[in-house]
């Protein structure tokens, strides 16, 4: 299953809720959620802990837009728009956390 999150983890609890619920599968961070996958962010320890059970992806154009392209947390996979589409097709279901 693919989980998509678009809110910063320091402003909104949707990523935290998502990671509490998701026991396996893929988590894709887009829009303001990309900050969760940047080094030094307060959410980093929780993200690292979750990476043991889910695979974390981040949408690179959203990272670049925010000037954070050079501080991606190691182990997180960056994807472009076509990679985003691939994730929605390789997973049977998809949940957007609003």
């Amino acid at each position: 299953m693919l989980h998509i999150v678009n809110k910063s983890p320091l402003e909104n609890s949707s990523l935290e809720s998502c990671l509490n619920v998701a026991t396996s599968g893929d988590v894709l961070l887009i829009e303001d959620a990309v900050y969760a996958a940047t080094t030094g962010n307060g959410f980093e320890p929780k993200l690292l802990a979750a990476m043991g059970k889910v695979k974390v992806y981040v949408l690179q154009p959203d990272l670049d837009a925010r000037g954070m392209g050079d501080r991606l947390v190691a182990g997180v996979t960056s994807v472009d728009y076509s990679g985003f589409v691939d994730l929605t097709t390789t997973n049977n279901t998809c949940q957007s956390w609003l």
Partner: peptide, 13 residues
């Protein structure tokens, strides 16, 4: 505070 981050490149979005 993220509004003031240097190096924002928005072409891709």
């Amino acid at each position: 505070v993220f509004q003031l981050k240097k190096g924002q490149q928005t072409k891709g979005i």
